[in-house]
């Protein structure tokens, strides 16, 4: 049985997540007026139409491209010795400390409560068209998975293969992959909630909603 209280306490003891923003491409980097201690925000607005705070600008082929924060947080470190220089892809630019949000805490705990269906091989994964339409129409929880069900498609080396679910029956509660990114072998793909766990999971949700207060 999962000790939600203990898990919550653990997270409360270290409620921050450190994130490194790296250069998604090459280019000449400038940090604008960014300073250590600045608050940054991720995309916001009802439709997430307002972009996050610009933390740096990469100019490549005369095209300045803003690098934006994806999460709310505080700037901990700026690699300002890079200012004005050409950086390779993947170069760390800024470190941000992010206070975990309710959703993140919830999914961190749920990850321990749910049955995790893992990637058999390093590949890209996406839902089968039927499952995908179901999710689009009725949300994740509308998909009931059974042992042996064809649920995902594994794509690698330009070839695709169906992937059958193995594990207890239940509904999908969390998705841990994105279709454009490679998933390493053994990494979780989806989190499934078996019927007998529903009460526990609802408890987690309620507890996190009431006991976790978000901070800047």
């Amino acid at each position: 049985m999962l000790d939600v209280t203990k898990l919550l306490e653990e997270i409360k003891a270290s409620p921050y997540q450190e994130m490194e923003i790296t250069a998604p491409q090459t280019g000449e980097v400038t940090f604008g007026g960014l300073a250590v201690g600045d608050k940054v925000v991720g995309p916001s607005g009802e439709f997430r139409e307002k972009p996050g705070t610009t933390v740096a600008t990469l100019t490549r082929e005369r095209n300045p491209r803003p690098i934006r924060a994806t999460q709310k947080g505080t700037v901990m470190e700026i690699f300002s010795d890079l200012e004005g220089t050409f950086v390779e892809t993947g170069t760390p630019l800024v470190r941000i400390r992010h206070y975990l949000s309710k959703d993140e805490v919830q999914s961190a705990i749920l990850r321990k409560a749910l049955h995790l269906f893992r990637a058999p091989e390093r590949a890209k994964y996406y839902f089968t068209p039927e499952v995908d339409t179901k999710i689009r129409a009725g949300g994740l929880e509308s998909v009931h998975v059974r042992e042996g069900m064809e649920i995902l498609i594994m794509s690698r080396m330009k070839r695709e293969a169906p992937l059958h679910y193995a594990g207890p029956d239940g509904v999908i509660y969390a998705v841990y992959f994105s279709p454009s990114q490679n998933v390493d072998a053994g990494a979780p793909l989806i989190g499934v909630c078996p019927p007998d766990q529903v009460a526990l999971i609802q408890d987690v949700v309620v507890r996190v909603q009431t006991e976790w207060s978000e901070q800047d």
Binding site: R60, E61, R62, N63, R65, S180
Partner: peptide, 17 residues
């Protein structure tokens, strides 16, 4: 102009410059 241009959908659609 000799320069690159970013598509406004690059974030969602992964368009290269």
């Amino acid at each position: 102009e000799d320069r690159a241009v970013t598509c406004p959908n690059s974030e969602e659609s992964g368009c290269l410059d």
